[in-house]
Write a protein that binds this DNA or RNA. Sequence first.
DNA 1: ACTATACTGTGATTGTCTTCACAGCGTGAA
DNA 2: TTCACGCTGTGAAGACAATCACAGTATAGT
Lengths: 214, 214
Amino acid sequence: MKNVEFPDPTIERLCCYRRILSALLAAGHARVYSHELAAAQRVTPAQVRRDVMLIGYSGSPVKGYDIAGLLDRIGEILDPPGGVGVVLVGVGYLGRALLAYFAGRKSPIPVVAAFDVAPETSGQLIHGCHCYHIDELSSFLSRRSILVGIVAVPAEAAQKTARELIDGGVRALLNFAPVQLDVPQNVYVENVDIAVSLEKTAFFAQSMSLEKED
Amino acid sequence: MKNVEFPDPTIERLCCYRRILSALLAAGHARVYSHELAAAQRVTPAQVRRDVMLIGYSGSPVKGYDIAGLLDRIGEILDPPGGVGVVLVGVGYLGRALLAYFAGRKSPIPVVAAFDVAPETSGQLIHGCHCYHIDELSSFLSRRSILVGIVAVPAEAAQKTARELIDGGVRALLNFAPVQLDVPQNVYVENVDIAVSLEKTAFFAQSMSLEKED
DNA sequence: ACTATACTGTGATTGTCTTCACAGCGTGAA
DNA sequence: TTCACGCTGTGAAGACAATCACAGTATAGT
């Protein structure tokens, strides 16, 4: 098995391609050209072709790519063979929003359980997801094979939460807390920092308004 | 005035530096070395020094950087002179989570108003933010100078929302909807795509578990 | 059968961001 | 006053990703 790793930005684009391809397939299309896929994103046709090349798929000249086939191939790359279990820690406003978000769309990656310190959330079923007290996290992780943990707790609790998840066997974290998590090198952390995103947006709003109108 | 633009990744790091510097200042520190700042993030000391150089600040050898001075300088870069107004569109689960998030921390960038299609949210005060019906958006924007819009509506409504915001004078969007917004070139869009983030995390969880333990 | 066409596949190039490595310098000790 | 130390500032090199540009090719039309 080739253990070639795909570059980070390519993985991100593959997720987006998949979304668009699914929509196209649902709309009755069977084939797509690189420039069509590119137009739906903010990328160049050459970028699309290179990504497709990277994952080892081929289209035909003249007719473009077969949507169903390309979708399958992307799925082979992105979707883990046995499926990944995902747990959510932190059922505050953000945690609930995430549960609603993932419950709404029939996601390929369902959240199997949620945990929180607040006793009143224990036993609740929120947006279709069972909630437990945080104390039950370790035993839950030891019983199920969970590879991904979503950290949606306040900043102060984030590091402790991360450690518990990692000790339980989780290999990657999706971190919404505004802190840099200290994790072993064999654990992947994807940070989603809303405050930083907003500050960045505000900065570019400012610099945009200085530029020429187009 | 030098209109030199800073690279995107630098802006992101500046936001993080600021957060760390504030914490250090609050903890009573007065000076910091590049390697200390670097350790708190996942960056190299050289990266920190280059960023500091870029924004035109200088530390002293031996003593490092003056925290208060560096914070001021970062603020001059990141914070718009007159402050940016921010409005939120979409007061669903995610929108409420965002309001709670920004209300909790005394953010340098407050959300001044929120809008939604649901009539029952109109007139409410959610986490300290006034909510209005979406129909009032245009007139609100024409009365106030708003540079940033947060799009937290369902995917189907996102493009329409974006257009209304841009027509109202907004120059940058923070987009949580899982679609690529079609905007003029002089409008900046920062996408926060939670579904993509989770899929990406799941992918790397998988590839991490194939690698050597450290 | 032949030709024109418009696409894909990809080596080469460009551009951008990160890292290296060392000169320069201010401080504190002798 | 002199020296040694450990930091900063930065030109140069390196790594990486995006783009260009064109050869190769399958199809449709004549």
